[in-house]
Design a protein around this nucleic acid. Structure first.
Length: 474
RNA sequence: GGGCCGUUAGCUCAACAGGCAGAGCAGGGCACUCUUAAUGCCAAGGCUGGAGGUUCGAUUCCUCCACGGCCUACCA
């Protein structure tokens, strides 16, 4: 059946309603949540929702109706409704949104059902819903027309309601711990706080280019200078990089900063926060992720970054020859990389990351790849920093914040020396802020989308973002 | 950016090896007052993602394009 023909038939029904003097797009309707109903409820109840199936039996029919809270069967009977209402019911379609009033009863097969005494068409469908049994499978349509995915696939509804739950739990946890939520600029004049290519936009009135933020870090730390001691922000950052199952151009990060703390305090907080969420949601320490079984039991594993390499025969990670030998011993392609940190990063990604299934902290990183972190005591070439891996994914990154403005300026200068596609600009305004003294602090970033992926069992970041970026069709 | 795979009715899928493009669901008609993937009967529904090419003949083989998926790269 062509789409045009289907639409034509539906519009004819729409016209039928109008011909009866009934507005097919209704107004406010007082109703209860479907999930709040049970067999003990006596008397009349009102619900509203979308009709998902209709099983017509001549002078009676059963329908399934869903609202956000759940699903219920409703029973239309001609001798209960009368001629007029039953005639109207014949012009109700799968997908219509209606309000229903009636009494609850239990069918012979034991199912809670609403015996409909009156109903109101609240919104007429003109499109055609996907198939009731197989649902909507086409991933492209699921992403482009997320509303159809949400109507048809309960698992999708569950994923996004879990995302909300997780975010609420994070906010409650942090609020209870004395953190305050703040909002810092998403449009930056100088992109900073991470190593990534930014999106560029333009302000007409000021006639200046602006960058969508790649991280909120430098602004949040300005607030520490200003005397705000525990701050966090949960919101979007934007990175103009490739798209993959782990990367969407806009993604949600939690960043938080705790004055007078350090990376160890952040580690404790991370453990407690995620452990709390897992237990609240699953009532267990263990969950499945793909074919992995993840055990969140405390304490989590801690491995020094420097110790990662020893099992590959690399005794001194600064020795490029040893690293290259490890690559050839492992029959691993160096992919033309010559930089020590790039080689180690590649080795980590190939051989170590996939094994980090249970939550694992990797601790103490080289200063070269941590320009905003404070040095390890007595070891100026290393910093107080950790990364957290769960289910083979990098989930969090934290460090003791560098608060020495002179050292920070030096690091920035070294950073722009290195080849990069980032604008070669130093955020002098941030350096100036540090000159007014920032308290020592611990800082933490958690990739919210990836955390939600692990906790909802979704293999792609697009499954946990309501509207992932896609090229326009045609 | 590179590699591989996919795109057939509104949806979910068929069409062996190049030979008239098929089913279920949804939609339409008829019957049916406890069904739940309701059932039975009838009728309809397609430029096979787009453009070229090979061939007597292309959903099928080839080229290009579009969109998507997975892997990979940049990155996080």
């Amino acid at each position: 059946m062509s789409e045009d023909l289907l639409k034509k038939e539906k519009k004819a029904k729409l016209d039928w309603w109008k011909s009866q003097g009934i507005e097919p797009y209704g107004r406010r309707y007082t109703r209860e949540a479907i999930s709040s109903l049970n067999a003990e409820r006596k008397g009349e109840v009102s619900i509203a929702g979308r009709i998902m199936t209709i099983r017509r039996h001549g002078k009676a029919a059963f329908c399934d109706v869903i609202d956000q809270s759940g699903k219920i069967q409703v029973y239309f009977k001609k001798d209960v409704l009368g001629e007029v209402l039953f005639e109207r019911f014949k012009n109700i379609d799968v997908g219509d949104i209606i309000g229903l009033r009636g009494e609850l009863f239990i069918t012979h097969t034991g199912q809670l059902t609403l015996l409909v005494k009156d109903f109101t068409l609240l919104s007429k469908i003109i499109g055609t819903l996907p198939e009731k049994w197989h649902g909507l499978k086409d991933v492209e349509i699921r992403y482009r027309k997320r509303y159809l995915d949400l109507i048809m696939n309960p698992e999708s509804r569950k994923t996004f309601s879990m995302r909300v739950k997780i975010l609420n739990m994070i906010r409650n946890f942090l609020n209870n711990a004395g953190y305050v939520e703040v909002e810092t600029p998403m449009m930056h004049t100088i992109p900073g706080g991470a190593e990534a290519r930014p999106f560029i936009t333009h302000h007409n009135a000021l006639d200046m280019d602006l960058y969508l933020r790649i991280a909120p870090e430098l602004y949040l730390k300005r607030l520490l200078v200003g005397g705000m001691e525990k701050v966090y922000e949960i919101n979007r950052s934007f990175r103009n990089e490739g798209i993959s199952t782990l990367h969407n151009p806009e993604f949600t990060m939690l960043e938080l900063y705790c004055a007078y703390g350090d990376y160890l305090e952040m580690m404790e907080l991370t453990e407690n926060l995620i452990f709390h969420i897992v237990n609240e949601i699953f009532g267990s320490n263990e969950i499945n992720f793909g074919d992995m079984r993840i055990d969140f039991g405390l304490p989590w594993k801690k491995i020094y970054w420097e110790d990662c390499w020893k099992r590959f025969g690399i005794e001194n990670w600064k020795d490029k020859q040893q690293i290259k030998k490890a690559f050839s011993d492992l029959h691993l392609d160096t992919e033309g990389k010559e930089d020590i940190f790039e080689l180690l990063d590649l080795l980590f990604k190939r051989k170590i990351e996939p094994e980090l299934v249970d939550p694992t902290f990797i601790i103490k990183f080289p200063v070269e790849i941590s320009p905003l972190a404070k040095c390890w005591p007595g070891e100026p070439s290393m910093v107080e920093r950790f990364e957290l891996y769960i289910g083979g994914l990098e989930i969090a990154n934290a460090y003791s914040e560098l608060n020495d403005p002179i050292e920070q300026k030096k690091r920035f200068l070294e950073e722009i020396e290195r080849p990069s596609e980032r604008p070669k600009v130093i955020d002098d305004d941030y350096i100036e802020a540090l000159e007014y003294a920032m308290p020592p602090a611990g800082g933490l970033g958690i990739g919210i989308d990836r955390l939600v992926m692990v906790l909802t069992g979704c293999p792609s970041i697009r499954d946990v973002i309501l509207f992932p970026l896609l090229r326009p069709k045609q």
